[in-house]
């Protein structure tokens, strides 16, 4: 693991943005820092970029202390949420900026800078745009210029702060796959901050989920989705329904129903299930009773709102026509296909 973040804390006056955070990032890895706003993910990224210093803790990169290095020595290419392109410079001048500001002895010649700029323009598919100004580009193009500018300094790591946050959904999706291909091509270790779980799951080799300045879970997207470590992670990775339950003798008791639950352990639990993993049965079928209080057709799926006591649950029915008798006000039985349970105290 070339990038080792150890015991990092960051305090701003009274509030603590990061709590004793540990994280390791592998060579050529694409890691997503996923979390709600205020979870500390951008703070961590800015510490790595050298824009702020941590209150305590160490960061080492390839065995050397990263925090003691100047920004130039760090070679951390950063892409900002709003790109922070220099408006008074052409696209080519923006990309070449990091080379032009080098001290004279390290500075490539003008021809070399031009050659590298052209190469990067090709890499981000903006050939022929070098003489334009940022304001003459679309949002997606600006994003790619920012990417090329960060790559120009031959970064040892690439830090992306919500790079698609200012783009519309369609462009976001296109750029997402483009970014993944770019990473596979360049192989630069990349840390990517986002609050969009779909984006993180789609793109990253590993996802680190942050909450309140702490890491809740780190792992491959599929592993995290399949076995979330905390209720927060389960909730953050997608729509979730929560019910109180009791585990006894290998069975999960939820309301008036029992479901088999492999594994041992017993006691009160929080049982979570996803809206699209629920079977809807007639009142004499399997599952716990609930009343249908809302039916909303939304594209390929139908969203049902079901009430049990004071708990309202969402069910996404994507298997064609709703079963007979499932209408507003009907009593049905709900049988989640899969539960994820956490001890009641968590």
């Amino acid at each position: 693991m070339p990038l080792i973040i150890k015991n990092i804390s960051k305090t701003y006056g009274q509030s603590q943005a990061l709590h004793n955070l540990d994280l390791e990032v592998g060579d050529r890895e694409f890691l997503a820092l996923l979390g709600p706003s205020g979870s500390g993910k951008t703070t961590l990224l800015r510490i790595l970029a050298g824009l702020i210093s941590p209150t305590t803790g160490d960061v080492s990169f390839d065995g050397a202390d990263l925090l003691s290095l100047s920004a130039r020595e760090r070679r951390a290419g950063m892409v900002f949420q709003h790109y922070a392109l220099f408006r008074h410079m052409t696209v080519a001048a923006n990309i070449g900026f990091g080379l032009r500001v080098r001290p004279r002895r390290d500075r490539p010649s003008a021809e070399e800078i031009k050659r590298r700029t052209d190469e990067l323009l090709r890499l981000v598919q903006l050939e022929g745009y070098g003489a334009r100004y940022p304001s003459q580009l679309s949002g997606g193009q600006r994003q790619r210029v920012a990417q090329a500018r960060a790559l120009a300094i031959e970064p040892r790591m690439l830090l992306l702060d919500e790079p698609f946050g200012a783009l519309d959904a369609k462009v976001r999706r296109e750029l997402r796959y483009w970014l993944r291909r770019l990473h596979d091509e360049t192989g630069v270790t990349t840390i990517f901050v986002t609050h969009d779980q779909e984006e993180a799951m789609d793109l990253a080799d590993r996802v680190a989920i942050l909450n309140g300045g702490k890491i809740e879970q780190v792992g491959a997207p599929n592993d995290i989705y399949a076995s979330p470590a905390t209720p927060f992670v389960f909730d953050f990775l997608g729509a979730a329904n929560e019910a109180r339950g009791l585990v006894r003798d290998g069975e999960l008791h939820v309301y008036d129903a029992r479901f088999p639950l492999p594994g041992d352990g017993s006691g009160e639990v929080k049982a979570f299930f996803r809206p699209h993993e629920v079977e809807i049965n007639p009142a004499d079928g399997r599952g716990f009773m609930a009343e249908v209080v809302g039916v909303i057709a939304r594209g390929p799926a139908t969203r049902l709102e079901c009430r049990r006591g004071d708990q309202v649950m969402e069910i996404d029915w994507a298997r064609g026509r709703l079963p007979d008798g499932v209408t507003r006000g009907a009593q049905v039985r709900l049988a989640p296909e899969r539960f994820t349970v956490f001890p009641a105290g968590t």
Binding site: A49, L51, A71, R75, M78, F80, L85, F86, G98, V101
Partner: peptide, 27 residues
């Protein structure tokens, strides 16, 4: 002035003179 401009210049290795002359003053 967007503070991100100077931060971007900083991460690209520009020193404070370069940030002032090449980024802030033109803006």
């Amino acid at each position: 002035l967007d503070s991100g401009l100077e931060e971007a210049a900083f991460t690209l290795g520009a020193n404070s003179w370069q940030r002032t002359w090449m980024v802030v003053l033109p803006a």
